[in-house]
Computed example of a mutant assay.
Amino acid sequence: MTDMDRLGAMETFVRVVETRSFSAAARDLRVGQPAVSKSIAQLEERFGVRLVMRSTRGLAMTEAGQHFYERARKIVDDAHDAAVALSGAGDGVCGRLRVSAGVTISRLHIVPRLPDFLDQHPHLSLDLVLSDRPGDLIQDGVDVCLRTGMLDDSSVIARKIATCRRLVIGTPAFFERNGALQTPADLSRLAAVVYTEESAGGGDVHGFRRGESEVEVRLSGPLRVSAAEAVRAAVLSGLGYAVASEWMFAPELATGAVRAVFADWLLPPLDCWALFPAGRLMTAKARAFANFVQAELGKTKG
C-alpha cells in the first residue's frame, strides 16, 4: 500500500467511524460499498489489528480502532487543509467540520444563519449532529460542540460565547385565564411545564431575585419533559408556563405569541459554550464557527 493509498484508506476509515456505516461512508465518498470494505481490510492487514467490529447493532470500534481514528482524523484533516491552501484558500477554514449542538438552539438560531457562514467559507462543508445530550467529542469525531447551561465535563476545552436571560414564559391566553399574578410565589398555583434538564437551566426549583428580595418557587404541573422542543410545543399549546431561556422562545417573544411575566425579577442567566476536544489543537475552522455563532447569538435580544 503506497502512502497515497494509505491516506485514502484512512479517509475511508474516518468516514466509516463517523457515519457508523459502511454504506453511508460509501455514499459520502461516492464509491461502492465493496471498495470501502476493501480499504478497511487493507488497513487491518497492514497494521495487523482489528479496527472495527460488525454486529447486529451496527459497527463498533475496537480499542485499537479508537486510537487509530483519533490520529487518522487529524492526518486526513491536515491533508485536506494543505490541499486547499495550495489551491489558494489559505485561511485554514476548509475541509469538513463536524459540529454537535442542541436541537432547539440549532433550529432557531444556527441553521437559518448557516448560508452566511458557508458563503464566507466556500471550501468548508459541515456535518451538523443534533442532540440535546452531549457525547464523547473525541469518540464522535466532533470538532466543536455547542451546549447551553452548566458544564460537568472537565475533559473538554470550554469557551463561553454568549449569555441570555431566563424568563417565565407562557401564552397571553394562559396567563389571562389564570388571573393576576403579584409575585413569583403565585406561580406555584399555576400549571408548569417542567423542563427536567437541570444542567440546561431546567429543574423543579427556581430562585428569583429583585433587589434585596429573594423568592424560591417549586414548579408543579401535568407535564415534565426532557427535551426543549417538547417544552416549546407544550407552552405554545397553552398547557402551562415554563421557566426557559429567551433563546428558546425568541421568535414567539418577538411576535407576541408568548409573553414573559415577572421580567423584573432575575433568574440565573443561561450561558452558551463552545466545547473543543482536549488534547487536540483547536482548528481554524472550529474557531471560525464558534466566532460566527458568538456573533449571531449576540444579535439575539438577551
Rank of each mutant, 00 (worst) to 15 (best):
R280Q: 14
A242Q: 05
P222T: 14
D271W: 03
S199D: 04
K299A: 15
D204W: 15
P277K: 12
Y195D: 11
V293P: 11
D271Q: 09
G179H: 02
R165K: 14
T171Q: 00
R218I: 12
P184S: 12
L181Y: 00
A191W: 00
F175N: 02
L266Y: 02
A274N: 06
G201A: 06
R189A: 13
A173F: 00
S213Y: 00
V235S: 08
A286Y: 02
F276R: 07
A230C: 08
V225H: 05
D264L: 07
Y241V: 01
A284M: 06
S226V: 06
K299W: 01
V235Y: 03
G202L: 04
D204M: 12
A200H: 07
W265R: 07
L223V: 12
E216T: 15
F208H: 09
G256L: 03
D186K: 06
A260K: 01
D271K: 07
G238F: 00
A295I: 12
V194H: 02
A250V: 07
F175V: 02
R165G: 11
T255L: 01
E229F: 07
A284I: 03
H206N: 09
W265T: 12
G211A: 08
S245G: 15
S245E: 06
L167I: 10
E198K: 11
L266P: 04
L167N: 07
E252V: 03
V205N: 06
R209A: 10
T196V: 04
A234M: 09
G170R: 00
V258P: 03
A295L: 10
G240R: 06
S220T: 14
V261C: 02
E198R: 09
L297V: 08
A228Y: 03
E198H: 02
L167H: 14
E198P: 04
G179N: 11
R166G: 11
A278G: 15
R177Q: 06
E246M: 09
V243L: 09
A228K: 14
A192F: 03
L267H: 05
Y241S: 03
L267Y: 04
S237T: 09
G202E: 06
G298A: 14
R287N: 09
F292Q: 15
Q182G: 13
D204A: 10
S237C: 05
L275M: 12
E198S: 07
S213M: 08
T283I: 05
A284L: 10
S188M: 13
V261H: 01
S226H: 08
A200D: 05
W247M: 13
A173S: 05
E229G: 09
A233C: 09
R177Y: 01
A278T: 10
M248T: 13
M282I: 15
A173Y: 00
E246D: 11
L253R: 02
F289K: 10
A274C: 03
V205R: 15
V193N: 04
D271L: 03
A233I: 02
A254S: 15
A191I: 01
V205M: 10
S220K: 13
E252Y: 05
A228R: 12
R177F: 00
G238T: 02
V215P: 05
A192T: 07
L239K: 08
F208Y: 10
F289N: 14
P172W: 00
